[in-house]
Computed example of a mutant assay.
Amino acid sequence: MNHTTNQSVLQTLGWNEHFANLFAPYAEQGYSVGRITLEHKRIYRLLSEHGELLGEVTGKLRYEATGREDYPAVGDWVVITARPEEKKASIHAVLPRKSKFSRKAAGDSVEEQIVAANVDTVFLVNALNNDFNIRRMERYLILAWESGANPVIVLSKADLCDDLEQRIADVESVAIGVPVHVVSAERGEGLEQLAPYLGCGQTVALMGSSGVGKSTLINKLSGAEQQKVNKVREGDDRGRHTTTHRELFQLPDGALMIDTPGMRELQLWEADEGFRGAFDDIEQLAEACRFNDCQHGREPGCAVRAAIEDGSLEKARFDSYLKLQRELAHLARKEDARLAAAEKDKWKKITMQARSKKPKR
């Protein structure tokens, strides 16, 4: 492949000047670059100028990693040594991420799990059936704002909704300034509204609980049966897990899409900016309180309490604000302890390495 062809292949995968500048020092050393499309037990499928390759991280990268966040994630651009004849590659480094959608990894440990990286737009998909949940939407919005990507709300299964105007009003009351699009993928209605986000080389991630219609949406947008679709459970409209892993693939119009498994229990990861973005209405009200350290309890001149009393702020939204604030504060305390332990471990490694290199007398 000549250089022009290489660049055009990479551009269809979302490559641009920003990443080219980050990669420049590696290019001088003769390395190639690829984009992660699938991860499975630390084996990675990636697309590159050499086509599709299976990649493994090098021992050096594994040794220097302090946690899961230092390993490649779906959507990442990685520095590789390609072995096209074997359809394999060694992954030496992960280029700095332009955006990343993270959540707390499942389990008791405090660890970041990167759901998708280098995303331009996040489609937050919510079904307009009995599983419609505004509080869950607030969680997704926090992490979407924190990710650095642009959130867009897609209300799916419009054909199952009897009170569409009320649902849209409910969403707009918590997703201030976020575009909201109503679709019925089953009937192919409203999908044209999503076209502006799906330009060639643009990366879109789909987030949402199980059964909200992500797989049906992908199949309609791609014009092919990319993803298996399961019926929702009888009785509560809750979906069964269809997607079991994160995967990046290309749509016919040149956009890249990352599908993710349904996340019913979405545990927050550190999200200062995201929290402010998701609750901008309450944050602005708080600035109008008489006291800077107002706890929005019984203090005089509390603008937040006044808004709840006059009905301009829903009490359930304020309660959600307090709950999520407490959750993030608790996580921050645990994360500080984890980082201190990781730093200690890192210096222990460096000390042991230095000792092993000392000449023996």
Score class of each variant (00 low, 15 high):
H181N: 07
V182H: 01
V183T: 15
V183L: 02
V183M: 02
S184M: 08
A185K: 03
A185T: 10
E186I: 12
E186V: 13
R187M: 13
R187K: 15
R187Q: 15
G188C: 09
G190R: 08
G190K: 04
L191Q: 06
L191K: 11
E192N: 10
E192K: 11
E192H: 04
Q193W: 06
Q193A: 15
Q193Y: 12
L194C: 01
L194I: 07
Y197R: 07
Y197S: 08
L198R: 08
L198H: 05
G199M: 08
G199A: 14
G201Q: 09
G201Y: 01
T203A: 11
V204W: 02
V204Q: 04
A205C: 13
A205T: 15
G208T: 09
S209L: 03
S209I: 03
S210N: 04
S210A: 11
S210W: 02
G211S: 10
G211L: 04
G211A: 05
G213C: 05
K214R: 06
K214W: 06
S215P: 10
L217M: 10
L217A: 06
L217W: 07
N219S: 05
K220H: 10
K220Y: 01
L221S: 09
S222M: 09
S222A: 15
G223M: 07
G223L: 06
A224L: 11
Q226F: 06
Q226Y: 03
Q226E: 14
Q227V: 04
Q227A: 14
Q227H: 04
V229F: 04
V229G: 07
N230E: 13
N230F: 06
N230K: 10
V232P: 14
R233H: 12
R233W: 00
E234K: 13
G235M: 12
G235K: 06
R238D: 01
R238M: 07
R240N: 07
R240I: 10
H241F: 02
H241I: 05
H241D: 09
T242A: 12
T242P: 03
T242W: 00
H245R: 07
H245F: 08
R246N: 14
R246Q: 13
E247V: 01
E247H: 01
E247R: 01
L248Y: 11
L248K: 08
F249M: 12
F249P: 06
Q250F: 00
L251V: 14
L251Y: 05
P252Y: 00
P252F: 00
